[in-house]
Nucleic acid binder design. Sequence first.
RNA 1: GCCGGAGUGGCGGAAUGGCAGACGCGACGGAUUCAAAAUCCGUUGCCCGCAAGGGCGUGUGGGUUCAAGUCCCACCUCCGGCACCA
Length: 937
Amino acid sequence: MPRYQPARIEPKWQAWWEAHGTFATPRLPPPGAAKAYLLDMFPYPSGDGLHVGHPEGYTATDIVARFERMRGTAVMHPMGFDAFGLPAEEHAIRTGTPPRESTERNIATFRRQLKMLGFSYDWGRELATTDPEYVRWTQWIFLVLFDTWFDPDTQRGRPIAELPIPPAIAAAGEAAVARYRDEHRLAYQSEAPVNWCPALGTVLANEEVIGGVSERGGHPVVRIPLRQWMLRITAYADRLDRELDGLGWPESIKKLQRDWIGRSTGAEVDFFVPPAAGDVTAAFEAWKRQRAESGYPATPADDVLRIYTTRPDTLYGVTCMVVAPEHPLLDRLTTPDQREAIATYREAASRKSDLDRTDLAREKTGVFTGSHVIHPLTGAAVPVWVADYVLASYGTGGIMSVPAHDDRDFEFAKTFGLEVTTVIEPLDGGPVEGLFTGRGRAVASGPYTGLETAAFIERVAADLEAAGLGRPAVNYKLRDWLFSRQRFWGEPFPILHEVDSHDRPTGVVRPVEEAELPVPLPPLTDFKPGDTPDPPLSRAGHEWLFVERDGRRYRRETNTMPQWAGSCWYYLRFLDPANTERFLDPEVEQAWMPVDLYVGGAEHAVLHLLYARFWHKVLHDRGYVSHPEPFGRLVNQGMILGEMEFTGYRAAAGGWISAEQRTEADTPVRLPAEQVEKQGEHFVLRDMPTIRVESRAYKMSKSRGNVVNPDEVVREFGADSLRLYEMFMGPLEATKPWSTAGVGGVRTFLDRCWRLVVDERADDLVLAPQVVDDPASDEQLRELHRMIDKVTRDIEALSFNTAIARMMEFVNFCTPLPRRPRALLEPFVTVLAPFAPHLAEELWEVLGRPAPVSLAPWPTVEERWLRDETVEIPVQVQGKLRGRVVVPADADATALQSAAAADPRIAQLLAGRTIAKVVAVPGRMVNFVLAKSESPS
RNA sequence: GCCGGAGUGGCGGAAUGGCAGACGCGACGGAUUCAAAAUCCGUUGCCCGCAAGGGCGUGUGGGUUCAAGUCCCACCUCCGGCACCA
């Protein structure tokens, strides 16, 4: 009884492929062969094992990989693990198990599950970001960043040794030069405010802080400054933005990245801060004269309040200035009688996380500093306020407030009763009362009155620059990348801090020699965070912590890198995973890069993809990689939701309550599909049709209990069924709900494929008696070649659902055939192979062909079988379908028309009518348009 | 609020401006069977009709076109993301 048993054949072929090295990739593509680098976003090996979302993208790339291999392309298709990360560390804190142990266990689970699904990875290239050899090169790349400065003139990263040293610095000695270099490196240290939660003893990410307290436990969080490693990604902001242009990425993802980078153009303008005593006008005039001579300074002295605006055309509408609570000039601007109010406000602001401060629902707050600055164009005195809606970290940390033409300024002015001065009118129509944020024409703007926004901006920026009062400027929302974490389970920084005889840092930093890499994690038994934001590594033994070099004593950097570090370059290491001499052989890099197809979830649209592009560009600038961009084509697989659910609501008082009337007090109850029916737009209870029921699929989650486990699906249906189902569900990029019945459907299809070839009633595994060596008929060949053609084109377009539908049609065509020619079945099995590789290998063997079908040549489509001799053409009268005629495939418009007119039914409809026009599209359709008022009734 | 994406049978979904609903699930009917499972064959958008046939139909309202799910305008709903960036 040889039925289709995936549990028997799947492990068999997985073992076969492994034993024969079927998917091992050579170091370089063979001469003359095309190459394809097909990459999945490697998973974080969580303790829960694989989720059904993982195999969706993995199957898609695997089908392409197998397809390309069969077409003779050299395929790079690797897999690895993004294994540093928080969950392993928290598990370690709870259980005392070292993170490396649990991580290795989880990787073993993931590896087993991935192999169970028959993906054609070259497992010889497997890597984990936690492998000491991998960490070695991650640290090495950090040292490249440390050794690089960004030359704004050429827009490229260059070796720090090439950084021009200003004469004044050079004259100040070696220490000053070293400091100057440190300030220009792409990896640099700075004091940055972080969210410190004393109760949890850890620093939290912004996302982990809600309403000023920790997400977990609800403990207070304070903002404290901490010395952090930063990466100067902002230097590359412009290139990261512009170089998205040529990429084959979804436009939506490009836009997300552009919005994240947030490039805006406008102008910087200096407002004069008058001296506390003396003649303000005279001082202002003197300042202007001085500026006209010296020009606009790159960094503002403390006699000006510098602001950035995207709308310099609203300069005449400024009614106040607002600075961030952290603004450096705030002390100087605060008058004695306002000192206390300002101090209180600042203190309150410092306690808030960024998240609270940007809560839109909140009323605007602020305090007047008591002082005024002088408007550079009008000479008017403008009051200066402090408010936390202005962010210290963007632009200059201060703004000019134009209530008439900016939402936030308008709201602020309303709250505090400040003046609103209209200086822009819409191009169409007259003045607008109150707020108008659009572009338009300037009014009451001195010499600029009457200019339209664009012209105004251009002129005023040029005038300001000529007068040394401002200049055109570009700003980015993107901030430098805070790169250090106070965590154990991450890559240690290959950095040494010089210490004095009392182990106090001298401020001198020294990179670890390349030959000494990797810097290993120290052995620790206690991973718990402490009472201070000191990283766990600071509790390492002295033998790890302190080292001597050239007679000086150093303490190791005890922060670790964030999880993103490893995923920034893994796609490069896959190409040359065993190289002990360098991170990647340039010959190999040039042969395989860039990645031709990168598939993964949209949750990485910004961070991972932006960080990886940044590192790649630095490596490119420094000559280590040949392409400026790593990922040529990107596709995001859609999310797989849980099964569709029907939810009714039980009223607190008892009985059902209709879904649209429910309140928080009513209890949701999950209903079986039989109790529900559709009525018009909504689902209702079958027994009580007045009660509406919600129908929706939800994201899979443990708490909802709708998580589908791939192990169970494979056990019940087989890996090929899981692969095929996930591809058949719908378009790769769409969000779609899981349906176990649907898995059963594709399993039935695979059963039918099996029976097409195998005799199920025999005792042994033998060919079905219908399988014969007859030549295939013309009709059969047409069916076959059309199927091959469609599947080929659909794989190229990643439209796997329709490719599978076409294969199903082909099987439906073959099943009733009493004689099934091999010439039909063998090409079908090869076409099936990328989708259901185990079944295809087994059928290939039953057909008596030499394994593996996985490397058999992809069948060629013969054009002549795609053409029909006759076609059925729809005939319309007045655009309505009224009949069909069969005509030769090459019939022209005239022939079509006469054939259609000859059809009895059409002739009857046309009898006695005046034909105004006939539209005949050869091979498509015929439409008779009747003269007006003559439409048949 | 802003920015994406999507609205097509009971469900998942097909459809270069040219026969709406391919393919699958479910449902119904038949064959097979002592029976059931499995399998095979068929029907299945809605309404009227015994039928032939006819009418309606791709979120809503308008428009372009011989012809619109597809193009244009306005709106509604759902999903996802961002969110005081001056």
